[in-house]
């Protein structure tokens, strides 16, 4: 058996006996520092890329029909108020602000439920708000279109950059199809949205369906 001479040549590391020499000691210290730097850089790189969200999201604007799974979903409008009243005249008054987002769901092929468990939410730069009210999910039977308003109670100081996240959340999922719909509330116009909501009551109906 012979030694493999085709192995790549490389400078040998200093033998253990030379580390007592000042140069050897400096070199060893430099090696330790460089190795530590490598470990830290490598660890940060892996840690940061591990944090990349696995979600696949498409971002659209209001009045922009988007295919979501087998359905077509459109946010057709946004209203702001400080109170809501349903068909039975039950009212709810918020000390903050209520945003009503009107969503249209078309199911040309098969029945589709937008939202499911908690697949409808509203996000701003620093807050996440859950949906409440009569329409926490919107279902369209096969061949029907359903329209309804989903409600969010929000803090008027934290609405800039608002968008709604819409998808069908199943009990078990891998990567669901998701869309983000920008509501047009920016840092510049957030105050005007908040002002327009003051003392205004929104009448909210259950979602309605009609054939396509």
């Amino acid at each position: 058996m012979t030694i493999d001479r085709s192995a790549p040549d490389a400078p040998p590391t200093p033998p253990a006996g030379t580390t007592g020499h000042p140069n050897g000691r400096v070199n060893r210290l430099a090696s330790v520092i460089i190795a530590l730097a490598c470990i830290v850089v490598a660890g940060i790189a892996v840690h940061v890329t591990d944090g990349i969200p696995g979600d696949v999201v498409r971002t659209v604007d209001v009045n922009h029909p988007t295919k979501l799974d087998d359905a077509i979903v459109t946010v057709t409008g946004v209203r702001a108020g400080q109170a809501m009243a349903n068909d039975s005249d039950d009212t709810f008054v918020s000390k903050g602000m209520i945003l009503a987002v009107k969503v249209r769901v078309e199911a040309p092929g098969q029945k589709y439920t937008l939202g499911g468990l908690s697949g409808i939410s509203l996000h701003t730069a620093d807050r996440t708000y859950s949906v409440f009210g009569p329409n926490t999910a919107i279902t369209a039977e096969a061949g029907f279109v359903s329209t309804g308003e989903v409600l969010f109670e929000v803090d008027p100081q934290h609405i800039a950059g608002a968008y709604v996240e819409l998808y069908n959340q199943e009990i078990i999922h891998v990567i669901p199809d998701k869309i983000h719909v920008r509501l047009g509330i920016t840092a510049d116009n957030a105050d005007r949205w908040a002002a327009s909501a003051r003392n205004r009551t929104l009448r909210i109906s259950r979602s309605e369906s009609e054939p396509l």
């Binding site: 090696s31 460089i34 190795a35 850089v41 490598a42 790189a45 892996v46």
Partner: peptide, 13 residues
């Protein structure tokens, strides 16, 4: 050795 360790960790990462 530290140099090898650093290099290996960098390439693996």
């Amino acid at each position: 050795g530290f140099a090898f360790l650093g290099a290996y960790v960098v390439v693996y990462s």
